[in-house]
Amino acid sequence: MSVAPVEIERTESESAPVAVREPDLPWVTIVHNDPVNQMNYVVYVFQSYFGYPKDKARKLMLDVHHKGRATVSIGTREEMERDVQAMHGYGLWATLRHDK
């Protein structure tokens, strides 16, 4: 980010706020239910990869199991691609999408 000259900066701060650029958010990582992965394994993955506490990891696992899918993380598209790749590495069925 470049530094604006002082006088311009001041002018800007006095005027009404202009539209703020939409941040590249939110994209979401979704984990889908599958018939093979065991419940404890899914909890383990959510705890060890995302660092979620056991209760949250368990709740997300139950959402996946009962509702067929759960949103497990939110962020930029780049971050979500990283999370999806990690989930695939663990063998979970995951996709990302723009959360419009």
């Binding site: 691609e81 999806v84 695939h88 063998g91 995951a94 996709t95 990302l96 999408r97 723009h98």
Partner: peptide
Amino acid sequence: ARLFPDAYSEG
């Protein structure tokens, strides 16, 4: 295919 699934499924 199960080990390396598609990352995008919608749109």
